[in-house]
Write a protein that binds this DNA or RNA. Sequence first.
DNA 1: AGCAATGGTGAAGCAATTGTGAAGCAGTTG
DNA 2: CAACTGCTTCACAATTGCTTCACCATTGCT
Lengths: 234, 234
Amino acid sequence: MAEKILIADDEESLVEFIGRALKKQGFRVITAYDGDNALFLIGEELPDIVILDLMMPLMDGWEVCRRAKSDPATKDIPIIMLTARSSAEDAVQGLDLGADDYMRKPFSLDELLARVRALIRRKKGEESVRTIEDGDLRIDREEREVFLRGVPLDISPMEFEILELMAGRIGRTLSREEILKKIWGIGGEDTRTVDVHISRLRKKLDDGKGPQLMIQTSRGRGYRLSWEEEQFDV
Amino acid sequence: MAEKILIADDEESLVEFIGRALKKQGFRVITAYDGDNALFLIGEELPDIVILDLMMPLMDGWEVCRRAKSDPATKDIPIIMLTARSSAEDAVQGLDLGADDYMRKPFSLDELLARVRALIRRKKGEESVRTIEDGDLRIDREEREVFLRGVPLDISPMEFEILELMAGRIGRTLSREEILKKIWGIGGEDTRTVDVHISRLRKKLDDGKGPQLMIQTSRGRGYRLSWEEEQFDV
DNA sequence: AGCAATGGTGAAGCAATTGTGAAGCAGTTG
DNA sequence: CAACTGCTTCACAATTGCTTCACCATTGCT
C-alpha cells in the first residue's frame, strides 16, 4: 500500500503545493492546518511520515514533535521539520526533540521530495527485507509464508499480517488500537476482532516443541510476541 | 495524561486569558483567585506546574511559594512567579524562595507559554527515561515490566504504578495521601486501599535473595522504598 | 448454485485485579 | 499493663478485561 504522509502547516497554499507533488509520486496525503489537529492525526492515522511546520496555531511544531515522540505508539514515525527561521539553534532543538530531518523555508520542492524518499527508503530498508528471522521463526514476506522450526505454518492472510507486524517488533507490546490501525487502516470501535485472530494465531504457533513462540497478553495494554521465558517460582 | 497547570492570580480576566491559551496547547488547567486557595489546590491537586501571581488577597505569592516549597509533597512542583513590579530585587527574592522561573507583567503570552513548555520539558526529561535502575532493581516504563536481579516480577498494573512512583524517589517517605493523589488522581477518604497494595507489593519484592528491596513503614507518615540496611539496636 | 476457506460478531464463561470490612497485631503513651 | 491509634492481612465481592465458542457473512473457486 502507498505510504501515508501527513503535511502539517498553517499555510494552506503551501500544503496544497506539497500535497500535489507527493500525490504525483504516488503517496497518500493527509493534512492538518494547526498543531492540535496534526497531533491528533498522527495518533489517529499513524502516517508513515510527518512533514511538520514549526510555527502553527494552537500548538507549535516543537510541542507536536515532543508529544509524538513521547508516545510509544507514534515515536518511530519519522518527522521532517520545516521552519522559516534559519538559526542553527532551532535545528539543534528540533533534532533534540527527535525530529528526523530538518529543512529551512524557503526550500526546494525537489529537495523535500528527496528527503521524503530517503526516509521512506530508510524505513523500507528496515521493513522490506524479504524475510524476518528470529530464533526458530522465519517469515517470508514475498511468499507470505511462515516457518516455525522449518515447518511451514498453515496461516490465513489476516493472521499473516498480524504475525508479520508483531514479529517486526518482538518484545514490544502492541495495543489492539495499534494493530487495528496498522492492519485494518483504522479502527476504534469495540470489537473482539483482534482477540479472535490472536486466539487463532496462538493455536497455530503452538507446535508443542522447543522454545515456544508465544503471544503474551498484557492486560489492559495489548499483546506482545516473544519467546517463552524461563519461569522462576518465587 | 495531559499536564495539569494551576494558574493563581486575582485578575480573573488574566487567568481566563492564560487558561484559554494553555488549554489550546493541550494542558489541563485549574485556577485559584487568591493565595489561600492556591496553596490548597497545590496540595490537593498536585499540579505539574504552578503559575503564581505575587500579589493576591489572603496570602501573597511569596508566602504561597515558601509554603509549597517547604512541604515535601509539593516542593518539586515548578513555580513560575508573575509580578507587576519590575525591581530586580523581587526576582531575586522569588528565586530565593525556590520559584523556578520568573516573569514581569506585562509579559508576552508566547514567552509565558515557552517557559511553561520549557519546564514541562525539563520535567519530562527527568521522568521520561525509559528505565529506572537502582541496584538490583530495573523498571521498564515502556513495557511496564519490573526485574529484580534480572528476574521478571509478575506485577499488576496498580502495583506497578506504586512501585514506579516509589522507585523514582527511593529513600523518600510518601504518605498515603500523596500516593492516592498521584496514582488515583485524587483521594482523601479513609480506605485501606493503599495499605493493601503495599502489602501485596511487599510479598512480590521479597525474593529471599541478596540485599532486600523493602517498603518501610513510617508510622503516621507513610511508606518509603529502600534497600535493606543493617539495623542497629540503640 | 455449491463448497471451502476466511473473517467478523455476540454471548457466555473465565481470570486477574482491585477495593472493602473485619480481625488482629504492634507501637506508643500514660 | 491497659487503652489507644494506626498498620497489616485475610477473605470476599465487584469489576473489568480477555478468551473462546458457535454462528453468520463474504469471498473465491468449481
